[in-house]
């Protein structure tokens, strides 16, 4: 197990370095260098001042020196200052938004599992039934559904036509401070229903399909035939023998589905006006706020990597075959 952990950890470090190198190279894609949004079209910035900025950000040094400096910075969570008017440190801006995005994504991941596992298992057990067909239809519509359109349609039906749900923000702005705890929770819930629906529907397709097919395969295998031949009740065969084997690889699938889920945050946070990192990313791109963009890109991919790493370890803990294999 220790050898396995060490090997995985080494891979983690190498991949992390790769992420920093790619993020860093993107900064230098900018025509005119990373300072161009600050200096271009700004008559107040004289060539001398520009020179000073270049010195300040160390842009006159060779690339590897700059990379090293940037790398040392991010270890201390120092991503520089935002180019926006407030010029706040980038990390402060991200810090206050990260919990919102993580909360919504964790919740939608939980909902995905809550729906996908029973639905997928039932479809596999009743393969080719009407229920199974419905599952297939849900899967494909989920694959093809543009999430931003789904968001707009939900807004139109529940926000505008029926007026049941608010269409923007994380909580009400007027009268929020006067609410008691119960009212606040209810207020949050109402605001989160639509965004959560969009996030969950987007991620559901892949997981649902995986559960269904995995269970279907396992049910056809020899040991299930044997369990049935032994005369075990169908309930035990399905829920004890088959389910365990079918769901094990799901840990890895969940790890792999993290980038997609987090990527979806950009869309639903922008549409529903939710103050998370996805919305921050979009705003930063529109304003060409490069330090914020880079920090966001790096942090999100770092979290994805971490999620994959934990999934790998979880899988190895749950399934001894994996850790023995990699020795």
């Amino acid at each position: 197990m220790i050898a396995f952990l060490l090997k995985r950890f080494l891979t983690l470090i190498i991949t992390l370095l790769g992420i920093t190198i790619i993020s860093f190279s993107i900064i230098h894609l900018a025509p005119g260098g990373p300072l161009s949004p600050l200096t271009e079209f700004n008559p107040k910035i004289t060539p001398e001042y520009r020179e000073k900025l270049v010195k300040m950000y160390g842009l006159d040094k060779p690339l590897y020196v700059q990379y090293w400096k940037w790398l040392k910075g991010i270890i201390k969570l120092d991503f520089g200052r935002s180019f926006s008017l407030d010029q706040r440190p980038v990390w402060d801006k991200i810090k206050e938004r990260l919990p919102v995005t993580l909360f919504i994504n964790a919740l939608s991941l939980f909902l995905i599992l809550l729906i996908a596992i029973p639905m997928g298992v039932y479809s596999a057990v009743k393969a080719e039934s009407a229920f199974d067909r419905i599952t297939t239809v849900v899967t494909f519509i989920g694959y093809a559904m543009p999430s931003f359109w789904l968001a707009i349609i939900l807004m139109m039906i529940f926000g505008v036509k029926l007026q049941w749900l608010p269409i923007s923000g994380l909580h009400s702005t007027i009268g929020y401070d006067e609410m008691n705890l119960f009212q606040k929770v209810w207020d949050w819930t109402k605001h989160l229903i639509c965004p959560l629906f969009v996030a969950t529907f987007g991620g559901l397709a892949g997981v649902l399909r995986y559960v269904r097919n995995s269970m279907y395969e396992v049910l056809k295998s020899d040991f299930i035939l044997f369990a049935r031949a032994k005369g075990l009740p169908e309930r035990v065969v399905i829920y004890k023998h088959a389910l365990r084997n079918a769901l094990l690889p799901l840990i890895t699938i969940l790890g792999l589905s993290i980038p997609g889920l987090v990527g979806g945050s950009v869309i639903f946070e922008t549409i529903f006006g939710i103050p998370g990192v996805g919305q921050l990313m979009w705003q930063a791109v529109m304003a060409r706020d490069y330090p914020v963009i880079m920090a966001n890109l790096f942090l999100i991919s770092f979290l994805t990597l971490l999620g994959n790493f934990l999934a790998d370890i979880g899988y190895a803990l749950a399934d001894p075959r994996i850790r023995l294999e990699s020795k």
Binding site: A30, P259, N296, S301
Partner: peptide, 17 residues
Amino acid sequence: IMLCFPTIFLILAVIAY
């Protein structure tokens, strides 16, 4: 490494430049 970047974040970052 490329698979660690959520596609939409990567695309947004590149397009910003």
